[in-house]
């Protein structure tokens, strides 16, 4: 068995139960899971973490976290936050929100995405620092992440 790392995703709603399978019932909090590696959207681009990574800290941007657990490829949409790799080899993703791929409401997300994109086009001439544009961009990034998580 290859070396494993511990993966933990924390949101303001608590720890995300990564053991949960589609259609399963949420169990009690059992702490981090052990995986061979994890891919996630860091501020400087997609990155992968494997066991024995150096202690590390970097911002996470909205996107998709991928890992393999119990022979299953899992995907989660995450919002912005942080990745922390501790000396003990625990990989913690602190994020404002997270959704499992099957929890995404595809239809609603798609129509929201279209709507936000349309609104952004209306603001195409506004400054990139404009508060509305910033907010719309943030919303679109989160919707994008959900769509990508749901569609693989």
């Amino acid at each position: 068995m290859a070396e494993l790392l511990q993966l933990d995703i924390l949101t303001p709603d608590g720890r995300v139960d990564l053991r949960l399978v589609e259609g399963g019932k949420p169990g009690s909090d059992q702490g981090p899971i052990e995986v061979e590696g994890v891919e996630l959207p860091a501020a400087l681009g997609e990155m992968g973490v494997r066991p024995r990574h150096i202690p590390f800290l970097t911002p996470v941007v909205p996107g998709v976290v991928r890992f393999r657990f119990n022979g299953d490829d899992r995907r989660l949409a995450v919002g912005s936050g942080f990745l922390e790799v501790s000396e003990a080899g625990v990989v913690t993703i602190l994020t404002e929100r997270a959704l499992r791929s099957w929890e995404v409401e595809l239809e609603a997300t798609r129509s929201d995405h279209e709507e936000v994109t349309r609104e952004l086009q209306e603001h195409a001439k506004a400054s990139i620092q404009d508060a509305t544009v910033l907010e719309l961009n943030a919303r679109r990034a989160w919707l994008d992440a959900q769509l990508r998580a749901a569609q693989g």
């Binding site: 511990q6 933990d8 590390f56 003990a88 625990v90």
Partner: peptide, 22 residues
């Protein structure tokens, strides 16, 4: 909760991007 806690120490940690952007 039984998890091996990431010790909050002063260990030098790599971070990315630079401090300002972080």
């Amino acid at each position: 909760d039984g998890q091996p806690r990431a010790a909050v120490t002063n260990a030098i940690r790599a971070f990315e991007p630079d401090t300002k952007q972080l």
